[in-house]
Protein backbone atom coordinates (compact mmCIF):
# COMPACT_ATOMS: atom_id res chain seq x y z
CA UNK A 1 0.00 0.00 0.00
CA UNK A 2 1.31 3.44 -0.87
CA UNK A 3 1.71 6.19 1.69
CA UNK A 4 0.33 9.29 0.01
CA UNK A 5 -3.47 9.51 0.00
CA UNK A 6 -5.06 8.89 -3.37
CA UNK A 7 -7.83 10.95 -4.93
CA UNK A 8 -10.78 9.52 -6.78
CA UNK A 9 -11.96 12.25 -9.16
CA UNK A 10 -14.99 10.45 -10.61
CA UNK A 11 -17.61 8.85 -8.36
CA UNK A 12 -21.38 8.56 -8.13
CA UNK A 13 -21.50 8.26 -4.36
CA UNK A 14 -23.74 11.27 -3.65
CA UNK A 15 -27.14 9.72 -2.82
CA UNK A 16 -30.52 10.51 -4.38
CA UNK A 17 -29.31 12.57 -7.34
CA UNK A 18 -28.49 10.06 -10.06
CA UNK A 19 -28.12 6.32 -10.70
CA UNK A 20 -25.20 6.11 -8.27
CA UNK A 21 -26.90 5.47 -4.96
CA UNK A 22 -30.44 5.52 -3.60
CA UNK A 23 -29.65 5.47 0.11
CA UNK A 24 -27.31 7.08 2.59
CA UNK A 25 -26.34 3.62 3.88
CA UNK A 26 -25.16 2.53 0.40
CA UNK A 27 -23.28 5.78 -0.08
CA UNK A 28 -21.54 5.42 3.28
CA UNK A 29 -20.59 1.86 2.39
CA UNK A 30 -19.11 3.14 -0.89
CA UNK A 31 -17.06 5.74 1.00
CA UNK A 32 -15.79 3.00 3.32
CA UNK A 33 -14.79 0.83 0.37
CA UNK A 34 -12.98 3.74 -1.26
CA UNK A 35 -11.03 4.35 1.94
CA UNK A 36 -10.18 0.66 2.17
CA UNK A 37 -8.72 1.07 -1.33
CA UNK A 38 -6.40 3.83 -0.12
CA UNK A 39 -8.50 6.81 -1.19
CA UNK A 40 -8.57 9.79 1.14
CA UNK A 41 -9.97 12.45 -1.18
CA UNK A 42 -13.19 11.74 -3.03
CA UNK A 43 -14.76 14.07 -5.56
CA UNK A 44 -18.48 13.35 -5.83
CA UNK A 45 -19.50 13.82 -9.43
CA UNK A 46 -23.22 13.26 -9.98
CA UNK A 47 -24.48 13.29 -13.55
CA UNK A 48 -25.50 16.65 -15.00
CA UNK A 49 -27.26 17.27 -18.33
CA UNK A 50 -27.52 13.50 -18.88
CA UNK A 51 -30.56 12.54 -20.98
CA UNK A 52 -33.00 10.28 -19.19
CA UNK A 53 -31.83 11.23 -15.71
CA UNK A 54 -33.76 13.37 -13.25
CA UNK A 55 -32.79 17.00 -13.60
CA UNK A 56 -31.07 18.53 -10.60
CA UNK A 57 -29.67 22.04 -10.52
CA UNK A 58 -26.25 22.77 -9.16
CA UNK A 59 -27.94 24.21 -6.06
CA UNK A 60 -29.67 20.84 -5.53
CA UNK A 61 -26.32 19.07 -5.82
CA UNK A 62 -24.73 21.50 -3.35
CA UNK A 63 -27.54 20.97 -0.84
CA UNK A 64 -27.37 17.15 -1.10
CA UNK A 65 -23.59 17.32 -0.85
CA UNK A 66 -23.67 19.42 2.27
CA UNK A 67 -26.08 17.01 3.97
CA UNK A 68 -24.12 13.94 2.96
CA UNK A 69 -20.79 15.45 3.95
CA UNK A 70 -22.09 16.06 7.46
CA UNK A 71 -23.26 12.45 7.67
CA UNK A 72 -20.03 11.00 6.24
CA UNK A 73 -17.85 12.94 8.68
CA UNK A 74 -19.58 11.19 11.55
CA UNK A 75 -18.22 7.87 10.29
CA UNK A 76 -15.03 8.51 8.32
CA UNK A 77 -11.95 10.69 8.29
CA UNK A 78 -12.37 11.48 4.61
CA UNK A 79 -12.19 14.59 2.44
CA UNK A 80 -15.23 14.92 0.24
CA UNK A 81 -15.43 17.42 -2.59
CA UNK A 82 -18.15 18.24 -5.08
CA UNK A 83 -18.14 18.34 -8.86
CA UNK A 84 -20.33 17.08 -11.68
CA UNK A 85 -19.94 14.67 -14.54
CA UNK A 86 -21.33 16.92 -17.24
CA UNK A 87 -22.76 15.12 -20.24
CA UNK A 88 -22.30 16.80 -23.60
CA UNK A 89 -25.36 18.79 -24.57
CA UNK A 90 -25.84 21.14 -27.54
CA UNK A 91 -26.39 23.99 -25.07
CA UNK A 92 -23.49 23.08 -22.77
CA UNK A 93 -21.60 26.27 -23.52
CA UNK A 94 -24.66 28.35 -22.73
CA UNK A 95 -25.10 26.49 -19.41
CA UNK A 96 -21.47 27.14 -18.53
CA UNK A 97 -21.73 30.77 -19.55
CA UNK A 98 -24.77 31.16 -17.31
CA UNK A 99 -22.85 29.51 -14.45
CA UNK A 100 -25.35 26.67 -14.09
CA UNK A 101 -22.83 23.84 -13.81
CA UNK A 102 -20.17 22.81 -11.33
CA UNK A 103 -16.48 22.38 -11.90
CA UNK A 104 -14.45 19.83 -9.96
CA UNK A 105 -13.93 21.17 -6.44
CA UNK A 106 -14.43 24.75 -7.62
CA UNK A 107 -11.34 24.54 -9.84
CA UNK A 108 -11.28 25.53 -13.52
CA UNK A 109 -11.66 21.87 -14.56
CA UNK A 110 -14.87 20.25 -15.75
CA UNK A 111 -15.41 16.52 -16.07
CA UNK A 112 -16.98 16.10 -19.50
CA UNK A 113 -18.83 12.99 -20.61
CA UNK A 114 -19.01 12.65 -24.38
CA UNK A 115 -22.09 11.12 -26.05
CA UNK A 116 -22.01 7.32 -26.07
CA UNK A 117 -23.49 6.92 -29.54
CA UNK A 118 -23.54 10.03 -31.74
CA UNK A 119 -20.10 11.56 -32.09
CA UNK A 120 -19.80 15.32 -31.70
CA UNK A 121 -19.53 16.92 -35.13
CA UNK A 122 -17.16 19.75 -34.31
CA UNK A 123 -14.68 19.09 -31.52
CA UNK A 124 -12.62 22.10 -32.56
CA UNK A 125 -15.57 24.43 -31.92
CA UNK A 126 -16.41 22.78 -28.60
CA UNK A 127 -12.89 22.96 -27.22
CA UNK A 128 -12.46 26.46 -28.61
CA UNK A 129 -15.55 27.55 -26.62
CA UNK A 130 -14.25 25.94 -23.42
CA UNK A 131 -10.95 27.74 -23.85
CA UNK A 132 -12.64 31.12 -24.38
CA UNK A 133 -14.65 30.62 -21.19
CA UNK A 134 -11.40 29.59 -19.48
CA UNK A 135 -12.54 26.10 -18.54
CA UNK A 136 -10.14 23.20 -18.64
CA UNK A 137 -11.58 19.90 -19.74
CA UNK A 138 -11.08 16.39 -18.41
CA UNK A 139 -12.79 13.86 -20.65
CA UNK A 140 -14.41 11.19 -18.50
CA UNK A 141 -13.66 7.51 -19.26
CA UNK A 142 -12.29 8.30 -22.71
CA UNK A 143 -11.74 4.59 -23.37
CA UNK A 144 -15.48 3.87 -23.25
CA UNK A 145 -16.58 5.71 -26.40
CA UNK A 146 -16.55 2.91 -28.90
CA UNK A 147 -16.94 5.17 -31.93
CA UNK A 148 -13.57 6.73 -31.11
CA UNK A 149 -10.78 4.72 -32.63
CA UNK A 150 -7.46 4.65 -30.86
CA UNK A 151 -6.21 7.08 -33.50
CA UNK A 152 -9.10 9.43 -32.66
CA UNK A 153 -8.15 9.34 -28.99
CA UNK A 154 -4.56 10.20 -29.84
CA UNK A 155 -5.70 12.90 -32.22
CA UNK A 156 -8.11 14.56 -29.76
CA UNK A 157 -5.18 15.09 -27.43
CA UNK A 158 -3.97 17.87 -29.69
CA UNK A 159 -6.65 19.99 -28.05
CA UNK A 160 -6.10 21.27 -24.53
CA UNK A 161 -7.84 18.33 -22.82
CA UNK A 162 -6.91 15.81 -20.17
CA UNK A 163 -8.03 12.20 -20.12
CA UNK A 164 -9.51 10.15 -17.31
CA UNK A 165 -9.95 6.40 -17.59
CA UNK A 166 -11.95 4.12 -15.29
CA UNK A 167 -10.15 1.86 -12.85
CA UNK A 168 -12.39 -1.07 -13.75
CA UNK A 169 -11.50 -0.68 -17.44
CA UNK A 170 -7.86 -1.06 -16.52
CA UNK A 171 -8.35 -4.00 -14.19
CA UNK A 172 -10.37 -5.92 -16.74
CA UNK A 173 -13.60 -5.75 -14.76
CA UNK A 174 -15.31 -4.16 -17.77
CA UNK A 175 -14.00 -6.62 -20.33
CA UNK A 176 -10.92 -7.42 -22.34
CA UNK A 177 -11.40 -4.76 -24.99
CA UNK A 178 -11.46 -1.89 -22.49
CA UNK A 179 -8.57 -3.41 -20.56
CA UNK A 180 -6.43 -3.64 -23.68
CA UNK A 181 -7.33 -0.14 -24.79
CA UNK A 182 -6.69 1.34 -21.32
CA UNK A 183 -3.33 -0.40 -21.04
CA UNK A 184 -2.25 0.93 -24.42
CA UNK A 185 -3.31 4.46 -23.44
CA UNK A 186 -1.43 4.12 -20.20
CA UNK A 187 1.75 2.93 -21.88
CA UNK A 188 1.49 5.70 -24.48
CA UNK A 189 1.30 8.33 -21.75
CA UNK A 190 -2.24 9.40 -22.61
CA UNK A 191 -3.76 8.92 -19.15
CA UNK A 192 -3.84 11.91 -16.81
CA UNK A 193 -6.29 10.65 -14.20
CA UNK A 194 -7.89 7.39 -13.13
CA UNK A 195 -11.30 7.44 -11.48
CA UNK A 196 -13.48 4.65 -10.14
CA UNK A 197 -16.76 5.95 -11.67
CA UNK A 198 -18.21 4.00 -8.77
CA UNK A 199 -21.93 3.23 -8.68
CA UNK A 200 -23.67 1.16 -6.02
CA UNK A 201 -23.64 -1.92 -8.23
CA UNK A 202 -19.94 -1.74 -9.15
CA UNK A 203 -16.94 -3.12 -7.36
CA UNK A 204 -14.30 -0.65 -6.20
CA UNK A 205 -10.94 -1.81 -7.56
CA UNK A 206 -9.06 1.44 -7.23
CA UNK A 207 -6.14 -0.02 -5.34
CA UNK A 208 -5.73 -2.83 -7.83
CA UNK A 209 -5.61 -0.21 -10.60
CA UNK A 210 -2.89 1.64 -8.68
CA UNK A 211 -0.88 -1.55 -8.36
CA UNK A 212 -1.24 -2.25 -12.07
CA UNK A 213 0.04 1.21 -13.02
CA UNK A 214 2.91 0.83 -10.57
CA UNK A 215 3.75 -2.57 -12.04
CA UNK A 216 3.40 -1.78 -15.75
CA UNK A 217 4.84 1.74 -15.63
CA UNK A 218 6.43 2.76 -12.33
CA UNK A 219 5.50 3.77 -8.80
CA UNK A 220 6.36 7.36 -9.75
CA UNK A 221 3.87 7.24 -12.64
CA UNK A 222 1.20 5.72 -10.41
CA UNK A 223 1.75 8.45 -7.84
CA UNK A 224 1.56 11.08 -10.55
CA UNK A 225 -1.78 9.79 -11.81
CA UNK A 226 -3.45 8.89 -8.49
CA UNK A 227 -1.98 11.52 -6.18
CA UNK A 228 -0.10 14.39 -7.78
CA UNK A 229 -2.27 15.25 -10.77
CA UNK A 230 -5.45 15.66 -8.70
CA UNK A 231 -3.51 17.68 -6.14
CA UNK A 232 -1.95 19.88 -8.78
CA UNK A 233 -5.05 20.56 -10.83
CA UNK A 234 -8.04 20.12 -8.54
CA UNK A 235 -6.98 21.78 -5.28
CA UNK A 236 -7.48 18.63 -3.22
CA UNK A 237 -5.64 18.04 0.06
Amino acid sequence: MMNAPMTDIHTHILPFVDDGSDSIADSLRMVGEAMANGVKNIILTPHALRTGMPKFTKEDHCRHFSEFQTEARKHFDVNLYLGQEIAYHPQIIKYLQDNKLLTLNDSSYILLELPFFDPIEDYEELFYSFSVLKYNVIIAHIERYYYLSYGDIVSLKRYPVLYQINSNSLTGESGRYLRKRSMKMLKDGLVDFIGSDIHVSRKNDFHLAYQMVARYLSVADADRIFVENPKRHLNVA
Partner: peptide, 9 residues
Protein backbone atom coordinates in the same frame (compact mmCIF):
# COMPACT_ATOMS: atom_id res chain seq x y z
CA UNK B 1 -0.68 17.16 -19.95
CA UNK B 2 -2.05 20.09 -21.96
CA UNK B 3 -0.94 20.68 -25.50
CA UNK B 4 -0.84 24.16 -26.96
CA UNK B 5 -3.35 24.15 -29.77
CA UNK B 6 -3.90 27.22 -31.90
CA UNK B 7 -7.56 27.35 -32.84
CA UNK B 8 -8.20 28.44 -36.41
CA UNK B 9 -8.98 32.11 -37.15
Amino acid sequence: MFRNHKFSH
